[in-house]
Write a protein that binds this DNA or RNA. Structure first.
Length: 503
RNA sequence: AUUCCGUUGGUCAAAUGGUUAAGACGGUUGACUUUCUAUCAGCAGAUGGGAGUUCGAUUCUCCUACGGAAUUCCA
């Protein structure tokens, strides 16, 4: 008796998909998979003016990179195709006509300029202009004009739009899975345009027709659509169709300041808002992407899943499968969530630890010309040592350059802290000790040097700090003995000599 | 201006009509008898305000404040 779950993600190709869109897609995907349903991608390109070259392809690639590919859509399992609304253009007019025939819609001949004038005029008087029962008889449409006049205009090929006839004095009861019941007084609704004079439907009509034709069972979309819900409900009723269930996701807000996260915030605030980088075909501006910035798709997905949803347990790290399993629409929050760039870094650091060292080594090697001649296996061992401190592959060089190149300068502060009276003598002894270790292992090195320190009661700091400075050039990095072992005896002795030479 | 939605520490957030209101990020302190951006441990920090219902409200209702969204022949 329950219908199969079919959800859709329906972006318009007006630019790159931003992080809020990715989250909407993700929640749709999770919901679909959880219920063995189908995740549909539909391209809502009814506004030809805003069409951007490459945006559609970008959307598809982004979903793929995130690991949440669509099951059905453009170029894939086209059972209900086509999936671009521009290619479905011929479908919509008949539905608009049907509404006119049923008395739910009407022709309107008012020009955009005229309406604009009315809006401004009302605004100047502190009122809001609403095209509805209140004033539609004073305007230029098939309700105010005689049948002959209307026919004459239509015959003369005059521009017209088709508007929904919003009822007077009714109370609508809307249902939203996340927000519960919402009551709306129809008197505040306006007669929305359903069909534009350019022959294309508006979002509202196309959306309802397509969701119906594609047998969408649940509409999961952003909260910015909530004000349109009343219209959409009425449209389903006017057609006599069963409406899908609606769920409006909370907005994603800017990390600081006011308002929802917008496409321009990213470069302004220093973090990406797009999954992949995007070059604007018109301006040639490049916007950063999570992928190129070194984020792992799993980390981004995990983070995004927690923006507006949580499992109610203390678990925070979720694989995609675990998310599918745990996801429930009922646990989605109502309030908008602020985007936190720090938290996604934390997720990335976590996922970094799970990455394969060999893969990381290859990525690291590719990113740094200094490493091109170095044995990948050596790089892999280095990564094993520094990974726990890394959030991105791009962190590796700062964390590990001394495994590949001897320090050329010594950090000033560190030198002050590490080099004291007697340091030269100590370093000379360390050299002898290192030199005398025949079986060159971390353990033997440790036993030798630590043993010497303890038995002579010298103090670890006095030895370890200058030694570290000699090897690294600063007071940082992994265990000193690991470093010695990795760079080898000869290089170690050389570096100690270099430091002694400066004192 | 109007309509709708929302409001738990700086941020993400849990929980309940009834003891000290979880946890995470960030912050901070300490430990790791060598560093640290890592790790571990500790600490600080919250139910916007006002009424009402109730024995009791952060939880339910109303008002208010604040925030957000929408009011396009954009989606």
């Amino acid at each position: 008796m329950t219908k199969p779950v079919r959800v859709r993600f329906a972006p318009s190709p007006t630019g790159p998909l931003h992080i809020g869109g990715v989250r909407t897609a993700l929640f749709n995907y999770l919901f679909a998979k959880k219920h063995n349903g189908t995740f549909v991608l539909r391209i809502e390109d009814t506004d030809q003016n805003r069409y951007v070259e490459g945006a559609e392809n970008y959307i598809v690639e982004s979903l793929n990179w995130c690991g949440i590919p669509f099951d059905e859509g453009v170029g894939k399992n086209e059972k209900f195709g086509p999936y671009r609304q521009s290619e479905r253009k011929h479908l919509y007019k008949q539905y608009a006509d049907e509404l006119i025939a049923k008395g739910h819609a009407y022709y309107a001949f008012d020009t955009a300029e005229k309406l604009d004038f009315h809006r401004k005029d009302h605004e100047a008087k502190g009122k809001t202009f609403i095209y509805n029962w209140h004033n539609r008889l004073k305007l230029n449409n098939s309700l105010s004009l005689s049948e002959d006049e209307v026919q004459t205009k239509l015959d003369a090929d005059e521009d017209y739009v088709i508007r929904f006839k919003s009822p007077q004095d009714e109370t609508l009861h809307l249902k939203d899975s996340i927000r519960g019941d919402i009551k709306i007084d129809t008197n505040v609704l306006d007669d929305k345009v359903l069909f534009k004079s350019d022959g294309m439907p508006t979002y509202h009509l196309a959306n309802i027709v397509d969701d119906h034709l594609m047998e969408i069972s649940h509409v999961i979309r952003g909260e910015e659509w909530l004000p349109s819900l009343a219209l959409h409900f009425q449209l389903y009723a006017a057609f006599g169709w069963e409406a899908p269930q609606f769920a409006h996701l909370p907005l994603i807000l800017k990390p600081t300041g006011k308002g929802k996260l917008s496409k321009r915030d990213g470069d302004k605030l220093g973090f990406p808002v797009f999954p992949l980088e995007w070059r604007d075909p018109k301006t040639d501006d490049l916007s950063r992407g999570y992928k190129e910035d070194g984020y792992f798709a799993e980390a981004m997905v995990n983070f995004l899943a927690f923006l507006g949803w949580n499992p109610g347990t203390e678990q925070e790290i979720f694989s995609l499968d675990e998310l599918i399993n745990a996801f429930e629409l009922e646990r989605v929050n109502k309030a908008g969530a602020r985007f936190d760039p720090d938290k996604i870094k934390w997720f990335n650091h976590h996922y970094m630890q799970d990455q394969d060292n060999h893969d990381l080594a290859l990525a690291f090697q590719k990113s740094k010309s200094e490493l091109s001649q170095i044995d990948t296996q050596y790089i892999e061992m280095v990564i094993a040592l520094v990974k726990e401190r890394a959030t991105f592959v791009s962190d590796f060089w700062d964390l590990s350059h001394f495994f590949f190149v001897a320090p050329s300068v010594y950090d000033e502060k560190a030198s002050k802290k590490a080099i004291k009276e007697g340091t030269t003598t100590i370093l000379n002894t360390v050299k002898e000790l290192v030199d005398s270790v025949d079986d060159f292992t971390v353990e033997n090195l440790q036993n030798s040097i630590k043993g010497w320190i303890t038995s002579n009661d010298i103090g670890f700091g006095k030895v370890m700090m200058p030694l570290r400075l000699a090897l690294v050039g600063a007071l940082q990095g992994p265990d000193v003995f690991d470093i010695i072992y990795m760079i080898g005896k000869a290089e170690t002795l050389k570096r100690i000599d270099s430091l002694i030479a400066t004192t």
